[in-house]
Design a protein around this nucleic acid. Structure first.
Lengths: 261, 261
DNA sequence: GAGTGGTCTAGACCACAAT
DNA sequence: TTGTGGTCTAGACCACTCG
């Protein structure tokens, strides 16, 4: 009984009192963002344990010398990330997380932020061609219009993992194969000023054809993971269409979902 | 030339001027939410076409009799949904959407909001048993502790589509098989007061064993899609662990991703 | 230079949960 | 009843984009 009470008290005590946050008003980085980062660091680092209450927003704001809306904005951003939970009449507490790090959305992020990082990539094909019907439909251009056709083989530890076929509007940017292998497709698009906004994905499976099996070092008929994706920039214009196949024996999509309230 | 100018003007003109929004201050639903819903309806309905500017926030707030932060909150919620894009120094415009409806996150949503709706479900097994090592680890309980073991066959048009194995902490709720077939697992959890917060998923593929093939009406060795998922409630407690297999010939995961700025 | 969104303040009242 | 987050107001200054 005493043990239970003790545990409850420890879990509910505002552990924030002793933490000091360094806010730099001269910095160009917004105050709410500075606070959010330091809160996140405190959670990651364990200074704020799961179940800990954050203390009410009014006190927090006066103690930090910020207005309440600013503090709320910081907290809200962490709620959106899934690190905090708010309960009306109760308080804000750190999510009792089994889940260490939100992991982001791997399937997209692998090929999006960290493309070509750990794994290596061989550009098998990089040339302009006339768009087939399905490619034209996906990219919203006329059938037969010029597109960049890209074919890459991705390897980890010297073993093939995936075969990636991508199509881009020909006018979008220039793709140098050597830079592509070093930098990754999405990073090149980003530095070309293209900001990704959304993507539509379909993940399925099928058996490998003999040709696919040969290229991926699998047996014919082996199970493959397939992914098709169309990515859009922030104006809604399609900027990439891709058909990927993965060796199921060496790859799986792994991600975390947040349920919007 | 004249045509081009006309099109440009039409795309950039604040088409919001003629729209009237009905805000009910007596309603318990927040003003920012009322506004967000009506903006979303106007977009869906076509009154606000892709590329249309929304008009600046100050004018909008005075015209609606709201404060600017309230209007901003409404707009921000639609930006988060991917329907609007803001550009500093330019304005807020409707996303030029190839993508009609955000589609939500299907793989989870199929089994989450609309579970057991279109498709039918047969409960093959529903009993309590001792947790195996992997189930215990996923649910964060002791090995050998009691769990509810669930096995369901999902069909569409009379054809099997998926075989779903789920495990839940035994203390969580009671699962009546007939209600399970009619209502769906996630809806039953929701009505039992369990609010889902996050889930971790792994999607892969492999070849069907003879037993699996027989149960799913496939050939042995056929490609199957596999999914493992652990779901957590808003306190971070694991509430469900599942291992699902899908006939790749009849099912694929299909969803849309938003890239956070 | 003019117009836009991005940030920030200092208050206020309300709905809900716990005691 | 008390304390919490949820909502809302009416201003302000800044950074950025564009003509």
């Amino acid at each position: 009984m005493a043990k239970t009470r003790g545990a409850t008290r420890a879990a509910n005590a505002p552990a924030l009192d002793s933490l000091d946050f360094a806010l730099d008003r001269g910095s160009p980085v917004p105050l709410y963002y500075q606070l959010a980062q330091q809160l996140e660091a405190a959670i990651e680092h364990g200074a704020l344990a799961p179940g800990n209450l954050l203390g009410n927003e009014i006190d927090l704001s006066t103690r930090l010398g910020l207005s309440r809306p600013t503090v709320r904005q910081a907290i809200q951003s962490l709620v959106d990330k899934g690190l905090l939970v708010r309960r009306r009449g109760v308080g804000t507490q750190v999510v009792h997380s089994q889940v260490k790090r939100p992991l982001e959305l791997s399937s997209l992020y692998d090929d999006l932020e960290a493309a070509g990082q750990g794994p290596t990539t061989q550009v098998v094909r990089n040339e302009r061609e006339a768009a087939s019907a399905d490619v034209a439909a996906a990219l919203g251009i006329a059938e037969g219009g010029e597109v960049i056709a890209l074919e890459r083989l991705r390897l980890t530890h010297g073993q093939p993992v995936a075969l990636l076929c991508n199509y881009l509007p020909a006018t979008l940017l220039d793709l140098d194969s050597s830079r592509l292998e070093a930098t990754g497709l999405y990073r090149m698009m980003r530095t070309a000023g293209i900001t990704l906004h959304s993507a539509r994905q379909t993940i399925g499976a099928r058996s490998a054809t003999p040709e696919e099996a040969a290229r991926l070092d699998e047996q014919p008929g082996a199970a493959l993971l397939t992914m098709q994706r169309t990515a859009y920039d922030d104006t809604g214009r399609p900027v990439e269409y891709g058909t990927h196949i993965y060796r199921a024996s060496r790859y799986a999509f792994d991600f975390q979902l947040l349920v919007r309230p």
